[in-house]
Each structure stands twice: as C-alpha cells, then as structure tokens.
Design a protein around this nucleic acid. Structure first.
Length: 436
DNA sequence: TCTGGGGTCCTAGGACCC
DNA sequence: TCTGGGGTCCTAGGACCC
C-alpha cells in the first residue's frame, strides 16, 4: 500500500482549463465540425475562440474575421453561444464535484479544486484522481481539458498551461524547480507586462529566478499580491479555494469605445447616458441597487480619468443617477481632449429591497419610476434592448460628426434630433398602457 | 496583437482630524 | 497663526485576469 501522505504533496490542488473552450463546445455540439477549423465570435467580427485546427493556420484570439477568411477560407465561423457554453461549464464543474465539494469555479472554462486528503479514501494517488477527472470530462462532454496538479493554486495553474491541449502536468514539491526554470516570469498568473518589465530590470527572467529571491527583497520591492505569488511558487499555499457560489457583484460597469475619437461634449454625454441605461438594466436584472456611481472618460492615448459620486438614494434607475452623472461628467471632461470611450460603473451595490429610504422623496415619484421601468424592462424583453431609451441618448446612435453640429447647445438640455421617430419617446401613460 | 468589454483588487497620496 | 507628527479614511488610477 502506497503512503499518500508524502512530503511531496502537503496539499494537492488541481486546476482544470478547457482547451479552446468555445470552439470545442461547438465541435461537441456539431459532430460535423470535428477535425475542422472552427471559429466563434461571428457577432463581434473578431475571433473569440479558435479550434486547434484553426490555430494551425496562425489564427488566434482577436484576429479580425476578414483575415480569417483570407488565411483559412474553409473555416467554419459561428456566433458565440454563451448559453450552451455555460451548460458545458456547469457540467464540467459537476463532474469535478463528484470527487470533492471543494471546487472553485474560476471562469467559464476554468476551475480549481482541493484534493488534499482524498488519496486514501479514493484508494488512488492524486495524479490518478486528476487523470480520472480529465478522462470523465472528455468522455461525458466530448471536450478536452488540460490539467495541472500541484501544491498551490499558482503552481497548478502553471501546470495546466504547461502542456496543451489535453495535457496533464503534475508538480510534486521536488520537481517544482524544473518547471519554474522553463517558465518566463510573464507566464506566471498575476504577472502582467508591467511587472514583467520591472522583474527584467531586476534581472529576474524566469519563474524560478523570482521564486529564488529572498523574502526580504520580495517584501521590499513588490506589492502584496506579488508576495503571495512568490509564496505560492515556493510551495507555500496562501491563496484559498473559494467554494461559495458567486451570487453578486462588487460593481457593474458599461463602456463603449467609438471610432473616430471625439471631443464633442454632446456626443460624449449621450454615450454616457447609454452606458448608464445599460448598467441600470443589468443591475435591475440582478435586483441590485447602487449607492455610488463612477463616470470615466478614456482619452485617445488610453488614459482614463474617473470620478466617483454618491447618490442620494441607492437606485438602479437612470433618472436617479442622471443629476450626479451630469455633474461628474462636467468635472471629468476637458474640452481640448479627444476621447475614445466613455464608461460608467455602478458601485457599493446592495440588494434592491424596494424600501423608501429618503424621507424627502415623495412616494408617488418612486412608484411611478418603478412602473415605468417595469414597463421598460418588459418591452426590452419582448422587443429587444433599447426599444425605449432616454431622450438624451438618441444622439448616441448618430455619428460624432452629426452630433458636433449641435455642440453649441447647452449640455443639460435634452433634445430630439430632427427626424427622430417619436415612437421611442413613450410617455408614462403610454408605457402603462403597453404594460396592460 | 499598438488596445474590446467586463470584472477584481491594491496602492499612493490627499483630506481631515487630533 | 504657524509648526510638526501621526493616524484614519477615502478616492483616482493602475495592473491584472478571462
């Protein structure tokens, strides 16, 4: 009988990562796609995921579809079908939960699980358990996944990336170093281009070189998350497996990049209104209300300027956010600057309890708002998003040049563009009628 | 990948208060 | 009114992830 409690596995953490996940799901759903180059992302015009057959043509995430057609005319291009992929995702997590309840759903195609202590009851080694999970997922779902198993999350994640597709990399304590030596620092989960450049300046090129730094140096020269990475790379598990289901949001944001860039306040303000409407729709769908709001503008050269404002009452209704948003916009906007995007973030979210919190708010107004938005949400559901929207955001559907003609108009004044259909500007009674 | 969209977490430094 | 030190709170912005 093998002794499972070796010093090589003080803990056993597994990371499972779907291979070309969206494309693989499509191939599982459509047997005729198997063995062929499949691309998802048709709705956006750029590649969201490429099957390994497509990757052989040099097609990667973010490539424009016209280029895909040039490089690989026989490619099958389909829109991303998130509902189906979510089902695959849920089933994948369910398979992992047959082995342990300590599963963390990290993203649609990735999960961690803690296998520590399972070797004896299951009568097999950790690596065997990992292999069995992998095999079960492939057999039952028809997709392949890559697996890493190690003593910490960061090492396990490194492992699942090490061999792809359909790989399995086990990293017991005494074999850790050879993998780290073969890994450039920028491949470590949590180290991006900026930190990689900083490491390079310090002469740190590989994950092993980073792991071998003294704890004093790391504590002195790196921020907290990177100290945690250093510990994890050295086999000290400090990142926990988060098993609770994520049910709420810390924030809800909406942003939209437009082209060409614009400095037109009317156009920018209208874009912002659309962002607010969209963010509020999402918040209401999740029965959340925000008590703060961040408005930001992204300049042509990718700098963002953001200002946060406090709402008088937690809400998910554009009308309640408008006054603060206008004020924030005025403070953020600089006339001589060209902007490429506007954005809004709802923060300090809480459950929508529908309680009247402001003594000064006439109850009738609140009820009216609720009625209106119940109708708006219903219409959106029935006839599509933006069937109804705020008067001021109509200009957002126009080209910036068009809006620029009206730049001399005062910002606050809501107005309707010439020829704009009145059908969109439904009054409260009309909305109420539609609801009936 | 010269840069889309939606998130999370962290920090520097200012404001404010003894 | 000025000076200094130190603590806490907050916010704008950065970095990173999928």
């Amino acid at each position: 009988m093998t002794n499972w409690n070796t010093p090589q596995w003080p803990r056993a953490i597994i990371h499972i990562d779907g291979d070309a996940f969206f494309a693989s799901c499509e191939q599982a759903l459509h047997p005729e796609y198997r063995g062929k180059p499949v691309i998802t992302g048709k709705e956006r015009g750029i590649v969201a995921a490429a099957s390994y057959e497509a990757k052989a043509f040099g097609i990667t995430r973010g490539v424009p579809l016209w280029e895909v057609k040039n490089r690989c005319p026989e490619a099958i291009i389909v829109p991303s079908d998130y509902e189906s992929y979510s089902l695959f995702s849920k089933r994948m997590f369910a398979i992992m939960r047959r082995f342990t309840s300590a599963v963390e759903e990290y993203s649609i195609d990735e999960a961690f699980a803690d296998l520590t202590g399972l070797a004896r009851p299951l009568g097999m080694g950790y690596v065997e358990i990992a292999r069995m999970m992998q095999k079960t997922i492939t057999q039952e779902l028809g997709i392949s996944v890559s697996v890493g198993i190690a003593t910490t999350k960061v090492l396990a994640k490194l492992g699942s990336k090490y061999r792809k597709p359909n790989g399995l990399t086990a990293m017991p304590n005494d074999e850790r170093r050879e993998y780290l030596e073969a890994t450039p620092v920028e491949k470590i989960w949590g180290i991006g281009p900026k930190t990689a450049a900083y490491c390079s300046k310090l002469g740190i090129k590989t994950a092993l070189a980073f792991a071998n730094q003294s704890s004093a140096l790391v504590a002195q020269r790196f921020i907290k998350p990177h100290v945690a990475l250093w510990q994890e790379l050295n086999g000290q598990s400090v990142l926990t497996i988060e098993t609770e289901e994520k049910t709420t949001y810390q924030s809800i944001g909406k942003t939209k990049t437009f082209s060409p860039v614009s400095s037109d306040p009317i156009f920018l303000h209208a874009q912002l209104l659309k962002n607010i409407e969209n963010a509020c729709i999402k918040a209401r769908r999740h029965r959340l209300v925000a008590s703060r709001l961040i408005v930001y503008l992204k300049t042509q050269d990718f700098r963002t300027r953001a200002i946060e404002g406090v709402l008088s009452r937690a809400s998910a209704y554009p009308q309640d956010l408008l006054r603060v948003a206008d004020q924030l916009f005025r403070e953020t906007y600089e006339p001589q600057t060209m902007y490429r995007a506007t954005g809004v973030v709802l923060t300090h979210l809480g459950p929508d309890t529908r309680v009247q919190t402001s003594l000064f708010e006439p109850p009738i107004r609140l009820e009216k708002l609720e009625q209106v938005y119940a109708a708006v949400d219903l219409l959106a559901e029935k006839f599509g998003k933006h069937t109804v929207h705020l008067l001021g955001s109509n200009v957002a559907h126009r080209a910036p040049q068009h809006a620029r003609e009206r730049a001399e108009l005062p910002l606050r004044k809501q107005y309707r563009l010439k020829g704009e259909s009145t059908r969109k500007h439904l009054s409260i009674p009309v909305l109420a009628q539609t609801l009936r």
